[in-house]
Design a protein around this nucleic acid. Structure first.
Length: 169
DNA sequence: GCCAACGTTGGC
DNA sequence: GCCAACGTTGGC
């Protein structure tokens, strides 16, 4: 008998589409998620995200504000080496390679929504009332999503295609 | 462009 | 260790 699969967790990653959009992820298929410089988010990246977890890809500072697709964690947390590359935009002079302060994960593309699930639509959906991204002042750039929220948003974004995508997790 | 909500910094 | 000042995020 195969080892029992541990249950996946689910996350929401914010990205400004001018910087890196779901289309960029679709093109690249896989990317590293470096540059997160917040300790709470760091702890999630370092301690809580595992291979196989699901990611809602959210466009922030955009029109429309929306979850635009789904990605998957394909490498768990590892040190964000850009923090100790002088000249890199994510260089952090206080960072010691022997005691890494910042972490990153790798994600791969799973699906783009045909119709983005807009912030407005999520705000109108009662079952998403507690979703962190909808809360005022929720600035965390990577944040946890409950399994129910995950299923709801993926269902809203993919319709008939949702079942097949949900089955990947 | 505005500004509320945070997180960080640094003087004391 | 407090807290004011400052910088950033990100919705509106």
């Amino acid at each position: 008998m195969a080892a029992k699969k541990t249950k996946p967790s689910f996350w929401l990653f914010k990205s400004e589409p001018d910087v890196f959009s779901i289309d960029d992820l679709k093109r690249d298929r896989r990317t590293s998620w470096e540059g997160v410089r917040n300790y709470q988010a760091r702890n999630l990246l370092r301690d809580d995200m595992k291979v196989g977890d699901g990611v809602l890809f959210y466009h922030s500072n955009a029109k429309p504000l929306a979850v635009v697709g789904v990605a998957k964690i394909v490498r768990a947390g590892y040190p964000d080496h850009f923090a100790w590359e002088p000249g890199h935009k994510y260089f952090d002079p206080k960072c010691d390679p022997d005691d890494p302060a910042w972490y990153m994960v790798d994600v791969s593309f799973v699906a783009a929504f045909d119709e983005p699930v807009t912030r407005d639509a999520m705000q109108s959906e009662p079952s998403l009332a507690d979703m962190m991204v909808l809360r005022r002042g929720a600035r965390l750039s990577v944040q946890p999503v409950t399994p129910d929220e995950w299923r709801t948003v993926v269902g809203m974004g993919l319709g008939a295609r949702a079942k097949g995508v949900l089955a990947k997790f």
